[in-house]
């Protein structure tokens, strides 16, 4: 028996390597601590209220500089808004359309089928308005960073006074969760800056939590369907495998 275990032991490091997240970029960055998320785990779903609050924070704060061009207003139905609410939200924005019959471009109120308008016309304009730093598009941000929503939360709440030996230029801020610890984004959140209509505390932590959940949704809007379908597929495969195991044993019974 022990002899049979040796190959298993040899493969164990392989599993370890697969489980341990691969190669962190820029090693000096502080690792974001684990937060409890409503969407973690195999049965986790997005908290609709948190998504709506997070969307509010995004609209009032983040969207001043960050685009989210892969999400459309119609997608907001995932967060529990009905059609009329989505139409109302969309119509608060103007988007460029055209050309019309005269060949002119024109502005019109956004429709549910439109994607979120970007705050800047192009990347260079975004850089010019932000001291040379490009505020990344937020559509995929939790998938595009190690530790996903944990990282966003840690970054938004992790601003610190720089250590004495660290010289910062104008427009730079100290944040140990950022690669290189220097970030061009001023601390974006502060207590009470967004008015919530429900009972949730209006604190930096709560804003960060909600907007991180919203960004996780924006990056993986299919997550709930994925996990649901996963359970069905796994149940089917497990049952089918069990049946096949029985059949295999029965067929092989005359051999053993």
């Amino acid at each position: 028996m022990i002899k049979r275990l040796i190959p298993v032991l040899a493969v164990l490091p392989l599993l370890l390597i697969m489980v341990v997240p691969q190669a962190e970029a820029a090693g000096d960055q502080k690792t974001a601590p684990h937060q409890h998320w409503h969407f973690s785990g195999p049965f986790g779903t997005y908290d609709r209220d948190a998504l709506q609050r997070g969307y509010l924070v995004y609209r009032q704060v983040c969207s001043a500089c960050h685009s989210m061009k892969r999400v459309a207003f119609r997608n907001l139905s995932d967060m529990g808004y009905n059609e009329a609410q989505i139409k109302a939200i969309a119509s608060e924005y103007n988007v460029a359309d055209g050309p019309d019959e005269e060949g002119e471009m024109f502005d019109r109120p956004a429709r549910p089928s439109d994607y979120f308008p970007s705050p800047f016309p192009n990347k260079n304009a975004a850089k010019a308005a932000n001291g040379g730093a490009y505020p990344p598009d937020l559509s995929l941000i939790t998938k595009a960073r190690h530790h996903g929503a944990d990282y966003i939360y840690a970054l938004l709440t992790g601003y610190e006074e720089p250590p004495e030996d660290k010289k910062l230029l104008a427009g730079q801020y100290y944040n140990p969760y950022m690669a290189g610890h220097v970030i061009a984004m001023a601390p974006p959140l502060s207590d009470g800056m967004v008015a919530y209509s429900d009972e949730s505390p209006m604190t930096t932590e709560q804003y960060a939590k909600d907007v991180s959940e919203f960004l996780a949704w924006a990056a993986e809007p299919e997550m709930e369907r994925r996990k649901q379908l996963g359970i069905q597929v796994l149940l089917f495969l497990a049952a089918f495998a069990a049946i096949m195991y029985g059949i295999k044993k029965k067929i092989w019974s005359d051999v053993h």
Partner: peptide, 28 residues
């Protein structure tokens, strides 16, 4: 039977850890 057992592990990855084997930078 063996294929089904293998597919169970595959399904766990596809449905619950779809990006665990990839690199976040490829979403930039």
């Amino acid at each position: 039977f063996g294929i089904l057992v293998f597919l169970i592990f595959f399904a766990i990855a596809v449905f619950y850890f779809p990006n665990a084997l990839g690199h976040p930078d490829n979403y930039i």
